[in-house]
Write a protein that binds this DNA or RNA. Structure first.
Lengths: 231, 231
DNA sequence: GTCTATAGTCGGATAGAC
DNA sequence: GTCTATCCGACTATAGAC
């Protein structure tokens, strides 16, 4: 076997692997793990059924690989939903800039969660794993959920003065995220109730606007609270 | 066959039917429809595999029956999560009473969604159907989601003066519900992040308190908005 | 690394006795 | 209405040729 043949096969192997993960992500996300057959995954990836065993051992291994892929993807694009607050805004760590950052983060999250057509499967996959914890959740939690939530809490402290790790802060941040996530989970109900035939950029913008209003309302309430406390 | 024998069998038939629905609800809710086998359902219901075919035709029929059961249950207890606003508070339809009602509704929902041990499977089942729409969703949507949401929007109009069917109102109500629902979906992540070993009444109360604070903050912001508009 | 054939398992549905 | 036996299809996983 020549070197170029090795290269071609190695590359092809990587491609097959990636295609399998991508197909698995879509199918696990939209139908669920158990409802998806390895045959279907292989077929969609235009790969062979045997290749799943070769690359991932078994179906469960493919689930873990998909989870790892998600963690890596999100960590790579890091700021896509979170913003680069900690990185670029350190010098301007004022209350106002922190508040604006949080507003931006919510807006990006809304776009990501509600509209992103490609990311839809990722979110769906995450939510499924979350609803039914398996080994894959451990990696996702420590790789995505925890760092994201902690970062938001840290920004929150700058924005409001409340300790980042207080129960109130942590719970409030969860409600901020939760209000957005519901638009993905409850997508079908939202579409019917809102008379939306699809949920794209325009709809995501509407959702983002409401989330931002809610956020600003909470900031205002915190300000009023502190004023009262100072008197 | 004597009449008493008919009675016994008829009653037993109803019991079997109910037990099957109950078992299906638990299993569909916790593991998902596809991941649950009819054998497991029958076994948990202490019934026979054949009885599923007899009572519901097939597995899908059992899913529909479970959906119908949920709709009926929620409509029966109607106010358990929604309050009896429209029924008992009509004479006192003031802005303040509407706001208090909404606060109460959120609190009950929080308790229901977060802590209720028996209702957990119902919520899980609902969320699964919502995430993956089937025929069962139609009944659940028109029987539960739509009336609940519409009622909340109506109360919102009294509480803030904003039209019940405006886009802003409908979306805001979704965010109010969504922030709570996330504590069920993301239960595992919340538990880890909050260092909660379980989510019971105490934890539900903490969540409810935050949700109420958010609600009151939004009311205050709406008031400020209207004041500004009047000037 | 890819692909096929197949072993072994499990699940949904049915027929029919009681 | 209940229960058993059984069929048939679909699935995962594996062994082995290429």
């Amino acid at each position: 076997m020549t070197i170029s043949e090795q290269d071609r096969q190695a590359q092809s192997g990587e491609q097959t692997r990636a295609a399998l993960i991508h197909a698995a992500l879509q199918l696990f996300g939209s139908k669920g793990f158990e409802a998806t057959s390895t045959r279907e995954i292989a077929s969609r990836a235009r790969a062979n059924i045997g290749s799943i065993a070769y690359h991932f051992g078994n179906k469960e291994g493919l689930r873990l690989a998909a989870a790892d892929y998600i963690v890596a993807t999100i960590q790579d694009v890091a700021g896509q939903a979170l913003g680069h607050y900690a990185v670029i805004d350190i010098p301007a760590e004022t209350k106002e800039s922190a508040r604006q950052q949080l507003g931006l983060v919510l807006e990006r999250m809304a776009r990501f969660v509600v509209a992103q057509p490609a990311a839809g499967e990722i979110v769906q996959f995450l939510l499924r794993e979350l609803a039914q914890p398996t080994a894959a959740l451990d990696r996702i939690y420590s790789g995505v959920f925890e760092p994201t939530h902690k970062r938001l809490c840290a920004i929150w402290e700058v924005a409001t003065g409340e300790p980042a790790e207080s129960e109130r802060t942590r719970l409030t941040v969860f409600t901020l995220i939760g209000q957005l996530v519901y638009f993905r989970i409850g997508r079908e109900a939202v579409k019917r109730r809102m008379d939306w035939t699809l949920m794209g950029e325009a709809e995501a913008a509407a959702v983002a606007a409401i989330a931002r209003q809610n956020l600003m309302a909470i900031f205002a309430a915190r300000d009023a609270e502190q004023e009262r406390a100072q008197r």
